[in-house]
Amino acid sequence: MRIGISELFTGEDGRDGAFVRETAVLLEELGFHAIWYPEHVVFFPSYDSSYPYGTLGGNEVRALRGVYDPFVGLAAIAAVTSTIRLGTYVCVVAQRNPIMLARHVAAVDVLSGGRFDFGIGVGWSEEEYTALGVPFARRGARTDEYLAAMKVLWSDEEVTGFDGEFVEFAPLLAFPKPVQRPHPPIVVGGNSAATVRRIVEHGQGWAGYNLEVDEIGRFIDQLDTALTAAGRSIDEIELRVGRRAKGTEERDWEDDARYIEQCEPLGLHEVVVSPRFSVDGYEAKARRYAEIVGVGA
Rank of each mutant, 00 (worst) to 15 (best):
I5D: 06
G17T: 05
A18C: 10
F19G: 00
E29D: 14
A34P: 02
E39D: 14
V42Y: 05
F44W: 05
S46K: 06
D48C: 00
Y51S: 07
Y53C: 00
Y53M: 02
G54M: 11
L56I: 15
E60L: 14
E60H: 03
L64R: 00
Y68D: 01
D69W: 01
D69N: 11
A76T: 10
S82P: 01
R85K: 12
V92F: 01
I99D: 11
A107I: 13
V108I: 07
G119V: 14
G123E: 05
E126Y: 06
G133H: 08
F136Y: 09
A137P: 00
R138I: 09
G140R: 01
A149Y: 05
A149H: 06
M150H: 11
D156E: 09
D156V: 04
E157Q: 06
E158N: 11
D163N: 11
G164S: 13
A170K: 14
L173V: 14
A174V: 04
P178Q: 14
H183Y: 15
P184K: 12
V188Q: 12
V200D: 04
E201R: 15
A207I: 14
G208N: 03
N210P: 00
G217C: 08
R218M: 07
F219V: 03
A230G: 05
R232C: 01
I234N: 04
L239F: 08
V241G: 04
K246S: 07
G247Y: 09
D256L: 14
D256Y: 06
E261I: 01
D280F: 00
A284T: 09
K285M: 04
Y289K: 13
V293S: 11
